[in-house]
Computed example of a mutant assay.
Amino acid sequence: MKTFIRVVELWVPDRTRMRLEFGGGLYGEGLSAFRDVSEDLHFGYDEGLPGKAWASGHPVILTRFTDSYFKRTDQAIAAGLTCGVAVPVFSGEFLQAVMVLFCGDDEAHVGAIELWHNDAETSHEMGLVDGYYGTADMFEFNSRHTRFPRGFGLPGRIWKAGLPLIIKDLHDARSFLRWEDAAKVGINLGVGVPYRTGTDQTWVLTFLSAQATPIARRFEIWVPVSWKPVMMEWAGSRWVLGA
């Protein structure tokens, strides 16, 4: 079974911190040629998909490789890849890595990837920056003309929670406001991840897929275990829990 996400790459700063070099990757079946080309590449600031995410300081989605800033167009098309997204990872002002995901679909494999954004200074809603929808034309049209308040729809719920979210059955989830359009094209599963820059910029990256084309073979969300301070008291010869 093919998955919607076909490739995962990590790009890390080189010794000079002026360029990004290949830091590892996972490639699906039949993608060895694309991997071989990628391993020898370097990207400068604002160059290629990894460099564009570095310069932007937030996730970047590329829905078409041809006639774009993408550097591996021929190899990506030959490998059946149709869109990509890059997510920069910063520690303060310093870039630590850029994660790049490449997705692929065809007439038999349906999937969508979206990037939503809210600027708190100008709006109380989240709008679509861009998205890849393959052959789901009507779903794309409605998505591009939809905005979500905080707490509504998949992007709005992730925005409010500030945490990743998985919805397994979109057609049964009335909180997914586009469920009717999604059901018509077979999309029934959604995964979303929030990304904040500063205090007033929120981005949400969503992956939507059909039963026959899962986003990935496995998705897991891990959260910190709740804890509370524990007071210890000395009881003559040993420490014991305090009241």
Rank of each mutant, 00 (worst) to 15 (best):
Val98Thr: 03
Cys103Thr: 09
Cys103Glu: 06
Gly104Thr: 14
Gly104Asp: 10
Asp105Leu: 05
Asp105Arg: 04
Glu107Arg: 12
His109Pro: 00
Ala112Val: 03
Ala112Gly: 02
Leu115Asp: 00
Trp116Thr: 07
Thr122Phe: 12
Thr122Gly: 09
Ser123Met: 11
Ser123Gly: 12
His124Ala: 13
Met126Asn: 13
Met126Lys: 12
Met126Trp: 10
Gly127Glu: 11
Val129Glu: 08
Val129Asp: 11
Val129Asn: 08
Asp130His: 08
Tyr132Ser: 02
Tyr132Asn: 02
Gly134Tyr: 03
Thr135Tyr: 14
Ala136Val: 01
Asp137Trp: 11
Asp137Pro: 06
Phe139His: 00
Phe139Tyr: 05
Asn142Arg: 07
Arg144Glu: 15
Arg144Ser: 12
His145Asp: 05
Gly151Lys: 07
Gly151Trp: 09
Phe152Val: 14
Phe152Met: 13
Gly153Lys: 07
Gly153Thr: 11
Leu154Val: 10
Gly156Asp: 03
Ile158His: 03
Lys160Met: 15
Ala161Gln: 05
Leu163His: 13
Pro164Cys: 02
Leu165Ile: 06
Ile166Leu: 13
Ile166Cys: 08
Ile167Asn: 01
Lys168Ser: 14
Asp169Cys: 02
Asp169Lys: 03
Leu170Pro: 08
His171Cys: 14
Asp172Met: 14
Asp172Leu: 15
Ser175Gly: 06
Phe176Glu: 03
Leu177Ala: 11
Leu177Trp: 09
Leu177Met: 12
Arg178Tyr: 04
Trp179Gly: 01
Glu180Asp: 06
Ala183Lys: 01
Lys184Tyr: 00
Asn188Trp: 06
Leu189Pro: 00
Val191Asn: 07
Val191His: 08
Gly192Pro: 07
Pro194Asp: 08
Tyr195Gly: 04
Arg196Tyr: 10
Thr197Leu: 14
Asp200Gly: 14
Thr202Val: 05
Trp203Cys: 11
Leu205Lys: 05
Thr206Val: 10
Ala210Ser: 12
Ala212Phe: 10
Thr213Lys: 04
Pro214Phe: 08
Pro214Arg: 08
Ala216Leu: 12
Ala216Tyr: 08
Arg217His: 14
Phe219Ala: 13
Phe219Tyr: 12
Phe219Glu: 09
Ile221Arg: 10
Trp222Met: 14
